[in-house]
Design a protein around this nucleic acid. Sequence first.
RNA 1: GCCUCCGUAGCUCAGUUGGAUAGAGCAGGGAACUUCUAAUUCCAAGGUCGCAGGUUCAAUUCCUGCCGGAGGCGCCA
Length: 533
Amino acid sequence: MVTEILKKALSEALSSMGVEPPVDIHLERPARREHGDWSSSVALATAKNAGKNPRELGTALVEYLDANRPEYVLGVAVAGPGFVNFTLDDSWLHHVLAEVASAGVDKFARLDTGGGQAINVEFISANPNKPLHAGHARGACYGDSVARLLDRVGYEVTREFYLNDRGVQMNLFAESLAARKRGEEPPEGGYQGAYITEWAAEMPDDADPLEWGYARALASHKETLSRVGIEFDVWFSERSMVASGVIDETLAELAEKEVSFVDDGATWLRSTDYGDDKDRVLVKSDGELTYLAPDIAYHRDKFSRFPKLINIFGADHHGYVVRMKAAMQALGHDPEDLEIRITQLVDLERGGETVRMSGRAGDFVSFDDIIDEVGPDVTRLMYLMQSVDTRQTIDLDAVSNQAADNPVFYVQYANARIHSAIRNAAEKGHPRKPLADVDLSVLVHERELELLRAISTLPETVEHAANERSPHTIAGWSRDLAAAFHGFYHDCYVVGDDVSAELTQARLWLLEATLIALAVCFDLLGVSAPESM
RNA sequence: GCCUCCGUAGCUCAGUUGGAUAGAGCAGGGAACUUCUAAUUCCAAGGUCGCAGGUUCAAUUCCUGCCGGAGGCGCCA
């Protein structure tokens, strides 16, 4: 990689003048083209320790590098307060193209920063007593895409869904189903949604409402998730922990480590010792478990299976973060190994009017409703376009009615256009030749180079997105790539009277590299890559 | 009161370990199709990066305080 060449050259230049090079020399792509292809602020960063003026150090670096030109470097200049700017021969981009084309979708922008470490990503974990609703959708799309990113950078990823399949909520659910089955109203505090009535009608007369309802809800979850390409590796049952006794084991361990205590007839977790603002009840004075006890047992179990856990929660569960980390620390785990990501809430609007997520009758906008309305690809993309740190407002009319203005279509349209151009070239007698037989150096149009520059940034973008758990970075990048492609497509014909056969071949490979980059993005985002639209 | 997130163009949002003249989309203004999909492209316009301090050669970015918005703080889950 050219960045390695430049870093090495900078390091040598610093050493030659007696300055200790930093461990990681920072290279960046200047925002402005006149600042060259690559830039380093290393002179600014090291000047102080070297006891030199940044600009003078930068000038000295440039003199050395000018006399000892690294590969690809056409020119090197000092600018501003001491930036060292490199201008490269276009051939570096031709080499990028060759590398991308030979790597293909599987290998391009696939990294090994994870080193094969096992990692567990738990997300959604909605109660198995109702269909998934709109509130689950953001966490679902985000969690799955984070898992895809981690997989791409070399982690062994397990997607896990925790099922709260016992307790008060499940009993109320069963009673509500049974009541509807008898043609009665659900009990006090029961579930009022229309889906209860629908499911009750499906339920056989001799079915156990709890077991049947549980299975029905689970099937509903799986069906909805499969529509947007989400599959879980593990569905972990809370009940299974009661059966296996690990909840009691966990409580015993907490007691043994003296991080729990009994007061007022209840058992408490001494979470204030670990930064919580109050201690939390594990076992109520009536002997019933709080939600916390099984949850701690569950995370204890996950740690027995994985060295690293990621949980994705909605904003309404953020209070849970401190106490769960406290519990894990109390059990002897490094709280850093339990990473909890919070997704902020989503407001749905229709024509500027807020859509109520759940009404008095217990009805709500379901995840399925959204997929029905805008389709799976738009659903995923609209949730992934934006950082989960910000509250999101989605106008369903805007994303469905004005589909033409939707970024999803903009990016997918690029994919379709590429396939169209390839088909056209083949029909006009220009099947693509093997890469080795094609001269890529004929790609000199600014649009071509711009597209190649864009493609070249995908590996670092994937690495960043994975590290930051930020799929929206990929969504934004794919938009930029599509823009670079559309610009190229507009100005550069692949086949035409003014286009030589050699140039057609080189451009066909440029299309191939663009397809590869798009395919990587589509995979990470979980959307489809249409060959025509 | 405490905790989390947010505050950047008219609107929705990016902004990569702090970097050069802060970027996109949409809306609004002006252009471009005899050839591969105009679901496109190009040009112009649009900014007190909430406010005030601090650290730094350099702050939208880091720190502190304040203002504003959202959410959470139960022997509910």
